[in-house]
Computed example of a mutant assay.
Amino acid sequence: MQKVIGKLIIVALISTVGILYYLWQQAVQIPEEYIKASEDKQDSQSLPLLPKQISEQAAVSTQKLTAPIDKAKAGQKVTVKLNDRDLNNLIVSKIATSQPNKQIPVGIKGIRTNIKDGKIHTGALVNLDQLARNGRSGTQIAALSKLTDKLTFLKDRDIYIGIVGKPIVDGTQIKFAPDTQIKVGKMNFTIAQIAEDLGIAPAKIQQAIDLHLQQQNFKVDSINLDNNGMAIEGAKK
């Protein structure tokens, strides 16, 4: 009987090690879409950008969003077109403007965005320890600490963290659909799973990944994605 129990313990240990190794392999790998986006956009976020550079790039992309609306008359149908570089510029700007120094936080590098198979893929290489050490205190930093405490093999190394989702129109807002996936390496999690694991309300995570593309004088009717970009159709108010 003791031999049987011993064998079962050994099998259980081997299985546990195998599962942990698999999780480690999945967590530290970089998704193909990120590699492709990096190859296509070597000049985008390759180096830390100054606040002025971030705001200038965002201004160019914001102009593409607002110009067609400004030129239209009230009630006129308008189509706004943004490419993946524009989306990346706006995402970078959103992250930077949330910081006191208006720069990308230490610990985040290589922000990339592309559009593939009707979904937006955006993410970056993130060092959770650096981000926690250099970030402001608060819920987000506490959540990062919880994540590294749970997945100790992620400590002090760069890993890919990203979002894969389809933008939808929700009333007057454009935001990611509820089935959006949060990626850690090649592992996929739902918003609900991440929220439960980190003890954060799902609405908080949804708010954090909001696209913030709304314009007060524009009513969005539909959003269409293809591999060349995103078209937002609506009417000027």
Results as ranks from 00 to 15, higher is better:
Met1His: 14
Ile5Arg: 11
Leu8Gln: 12
Ile10Gln: 11
Ala12Glu: 11
Ile14Tyr: 14
Thr16Ile: 10
Gly18Leu: 12
Leu23Val: 12
Leu23Trp: 03
Trp24Pro: 03
Ala27Cys: 11
Val28Asp: 04
Ile30Gly: 00
Pro31Cys: 11
Glu33Ser: 09
Glu33Cys: 06
Asp43Met: 13
Ser46Ile: 10
Leu49Ala: 08
Lys52Val: 03
Ile54Gly: 00
Glu56Asp: 14
Ala59His: 06
Ala59Glu: 14
Val60Phe: 14
Thr62Met: 08
Gln63Leu: 07
Gln63Phe: 10
Thr66His: 05
Pro68Asp: 11
Ile69Val: 15
Ile69Trp: 02
Ala72Trp: 05
Lys73Cys: 08
Ala74Met: 13
Gly75Thr: 12
Val78Tyr: 06
Val78Asn: 06
Lys81His: 09
Leu82Thr: 04
Leu82Ile: 10
Arg85Phe: 09
Leu87Trp: 07
Ile91Trp: 07
Ser93Phe: 15
Ser93Met: 10
Ser93Ile: 02
Ile95Ser: 00
Gln99Asn: 01
Gln99Ile: 02
Gln99Asp: 01
Pro100Asp: 04
Gln103Glu: 15
Ile104Gln: 02
Pro105Met: 05
Ile108Gln: 00
Thr113Ile: 10
Asn114His: 04
Ile115Arg: 02
Lys116Val: 04
Lys119Ile: 13
Gly123Tyr: 09
Leu125Ala: 04
Val126Pro: 03
Val126Thr: 08
Leu128Ile: 13
Gln130Tyr: 06
Leu131Trp: 03
Gly135Asn: 02
Arg136Met: 11
Arg136Pro: 04
Thr139Val: 10
Thr139Cys: 01
Ala142Met: 09
Ala142Pro: 01
Leu144Tyr: 03
Lys146Met: 09
Thr148Phe: 13
Lys150Pro: 06
Phe153Glu: 01
Phe153Met: 08
Phe153Trp: 15
Ile161Thr: 11
Pro167Asp: 02
Asp170Phe: 12
Gln173His: 09
Ile174Leu: 15
Ala177Gly: 11
Pro178His: 10
Asp179Gln: 09
Ile182Arg: 02
Lys183Asp: 02
Gly185Trp: 01
Gly185Ile: 06
Ala192Leu: 05
Ala192Asn: 09
Gln193His: 03
Ile194Met: 08
Ile194Phe: 03
Ala195Thr: 07
Gly199His: 08
Lys204Val: 13
Ile205Trp: 00
Ile209Met: 08
Ile209Val: 05
Asp210Thr: 02
Leu211Ser: 01
His212Met: 09
His212Arg: 14
Gln214Lys: 10
Gln215Asp: 14
Gln215Thr: 10
Gln216Asp: 14
Val220Ser: 15
Asp221Ser: 14
Asp221Lys: 15
Ser222His: 06
Leu225Cys: 11
Ile232Phe: 06
Ala235Pro: 00
